[in-house]
């Protein structure tokens, strides 16, 4: 990257809040896909993914295999970086700031401090302000989202329930976050103190939401998207982009499904296009009901 650093000749700042949140703005209206090898990364890019998430196993397999799940091997992440020109994201365990340091040094474009991996710290998340690489974090409600933003997250995604192919949890999380934002904007000054207390969130961030009516960073949907209709549902509910994990590469025919989900995300309000792209995609991933899971990944995170 030496030749790209012509930048240093004039005073310039890397890793500022605008630069980190800015990349999330560029993902809006797009699909970020989980991939486990360079071949899948190529399929994702060809289908029109705005970014890929490099990981060793998709959440559905993580769920099936069990055990401690860690950051991916740097070699595997580099392999994916080499085959694609779009941004590459990777996951670090909750609270595992050394994994995050390694990912930053690898030049990963976005770090996901993710509940899909086994948490490394039962009380603390990573101090994300200490990094120039931007972070995305999961949230199930507005309080959790604001705690993560307070720690320096530049993008929030619903947690959903990864690896289930079941959208119900992501819908719950989106409705909860967006519903509470609406309520906060109705509150008067005195009530905002109580909102901050109830949400266990920093007061200045709550006050900012009351003023602007929106989250400080882009809000994306993740966890359980398996069909083009799922993606469009998330977008119509108010998500600004979607993550698809197991939903693509655990389905019968990944490439056309990946493309269909991209088109559905862009044209999320156009029922005619949604109908067209939903046709003949083969079997989606099987999916799991919430009563049939032992470990709820969304409960991880504090």
């Amino acid at each position: 990257m030496e030749e790209t650093n012509k930048a240093v000749a004039q005073p310039s700042t890397v890793g500022s809040i605008r630069v980190k949140r800015g990349l999330a703005e560029m993902f809006k209206g797009g699909v970020i896909m989980d991939v486990v090898n360079p071949e899948q990364a190529k399929i994702a890019e060809d289908a029109g993914a705005v970014a890929v998430m490099a990981l060793e196993r998709v959440p559905a397999d993580i769920r099936a295999d069990g055990g401690v799940v860690r950051m991916s091997d740097p070699e595997m992440i580099e392999g994916i970086k080499q085959v694609t020109t779009i941004p590459v994201m990777a996951k670090a365990r909750i609270g595992h700031f050394v994994e995050a340091q390694i990912l930053q040094s690898l030049g990963v474009d976005y770090i996901d401090e993710s509940e899909v991996l086994t948490p490394a710290d039962e009380a603390h998340h990573i101090d994300k302000w200490a990094f120039t690489a931007p972070f995305v974090c999961g949230a199930t409600n507005l309080g959790e989202a604001l705690r993560r933003i307070g720690e320096g997250a530049c993008m929030i995604r619903s947690k959903g329930e990864a690896g289930t192919g079941n959208i119900v949890e992501a819908v719950r999380h989106l409705r909860s976050i967006l519903g509470d934002i609406k309520k906060v904007t109705q509150a008067d000054q005195a009530e905002l103190f109580d909102w901050a207390k109830q949400l266990q969130a920093p007061l200045p961030l709550v006050q900012e939401i009351a003023e602007t009516g929106k989250l400080q960073v882009p809000l994306f949907c993740a966890g359980g998207i398996a069909t083009p209709a799922d993606a469009a549902l998330a977008m119509q509910l108010g998500a600004e982009a979607v993550f698809v994990g197991s939903g693509i590469f655990k389905s019968e025919d990944p490439a056309p499904r990946a493309k269909a989900i991209v088109e559905a995300t862009t044209n999320f309000e156009d029922a005619e296009i949604l109908t067209k792209v939903s046709r003949g995609l083969g079997a989606p991933m099987t999916g799991i009901g919430m009563d049939d899971i032992d470990v709820k990944l969304a409960d991880r995170g504090w």
């Binding site: 990257m1 790209t4 650093n5 004039q10 005073p11 990963v108």
Partner: peptide
């Protein structure tokens, strides 16, 4: 030239 100014870790703001 795409990504002339590098990846996200090289992204910057400046006058």
């Amino acid at each position: 030239t795409r990504n002339f100014y590098g990846r996200q870790v090289d992204s910057f703001e400046s006058a």
